[in-house]
Design a binder for these strands. Sequence first.
DNA 1: CTCAGTATACTGCAATCCGCACTACTGCAA
DNA 2: TTGCAGTAGTGCGGATTGCAGTATACTGAG
Lengths: 213, 213
Amino acid sequence: MSPRLSTTGYAVLGMLALRPATPYELTQQMQRSLDYCWPTSERSLYDQPERLVAAGLATLVDDGGADGRRRYAVTPAGLAALRAWLADASAMPRFQNEPLLRVLYGDLGTVEDLHRVIDDVRVHVADRRERGAAQMAPYLEGAGLFQERAHIVVLVADLVNRILEALDDWAEQAQQITAAWESTQGVGLTDDLRQVLERMLEAARGRERPPGP
Amino acid sequence: MSPRLSTTGYAVLGMLALRPATPYELTQQMQRSLDYCWPTSERSLYDQPERLVAAGLATLVDDGGADGRRRYAVTPAGLAALRAWLADASAMPRFQNEPLLRVLYGDLGTVEDLHRVIDDVRVHVADRRERGAAQMAPYLEGAGLFQERAHIVVLVADLVNRILEALDDWAEQAQQITAAWESTQGVGLTDDLRQVLERMLEAARGRERPPGP
DNA sequence: CTCAGTATACTGCAATCCGCACTACTGCAA
DNA sequence: TTGCAGTAGTGCGGATTGCAGTATACTGAG
């Protein structure tokens, strides 16, 4: 019946289920929460509510006159659609890691380029973590923005933080390893890289099956 | 001059810079490498080479007759464009984490839904790690597919692996924490969640400035 | 008072990307 | 010779993106 909602559609539907909102408020909320698990352009958030209305999953609860400021809320059908979505299979996380792409082709550029990309990762991560901490700190005192959902919010924030930690740890190690490189080409499997590779393969093997016959 | 290449455009340009390829070969390579840092649909990979040719960054080195099988290679201008791209600023990594979105709205569904999403993450991650290990193991014996680029490949694989590890560790902890939940709503800040939150905030604080005056 | 400058809250548009269905060819096996 | 699976694509409609542009409100200098 409904022409298959996109994941972004469900993301918006979910936000409206938490509380009715105007498109602009959706863009604000996106920066606070959605951006950590499902980044989208602001542009598309302005279009989503209308599409949800067309599918019968949301309604206009306040057309704010001629000057816009339209507020939308979920319908019972919308809630049902959300619950159905939550019940079906999820996709593998997709990581659009542009800095890593630059590292992957790093041997086509200079060592300075490579160093800068890695440094930038740490800067980006530090910024994100700082903003994340500022958002999460109030929850300890019972004063979070969605305190009644604290259990969910903490779980989500924890994964985001773990991934940022992984990025930062990697970047720190990459800084140390690449500091010695004189060129981006022909470095070969140096001792430190061999260690990294061995640890990686060992960890992967460890997960397969506990003992083995 | 050229109408600004997309990141996917540079990703393809980079693959062609490593070795000339047919569009189909690009889709194969994507599954092996690009998918870990810059996932795209196969469909768009078929279109990219033509676009690069139009921009003067690639050329057809073998139009395989009427039956397709066209092979493309970078031009000197293409290599220059790649180097210029490597020299300019990178964007923050973007994580499209659909399972996490489902957790974020988990309080609108059942506990079973929530458990399943978290379990699925571990399954997805195990699968990825296994494939990654199979690809990386040959590099230890000097028999990797791009052995002469081993230093780069190991660095990239290490970040991918660290992120997968973070996902799995998080999921394992989330399994334990949510195992006790009888409903997805009104759980509140239980002791285990409070500990997670405290560790998170402490870690973030630790990064800000080493000692303090 | 007014006028430039800035912030907020959008809208339009062209380019790009995506999923899906569909085609065409090859081997090979009943 | 027909059916089926695998390989290598193409076409198309709709979704998404970045960017430029608009409208309105406030703010403080002259």
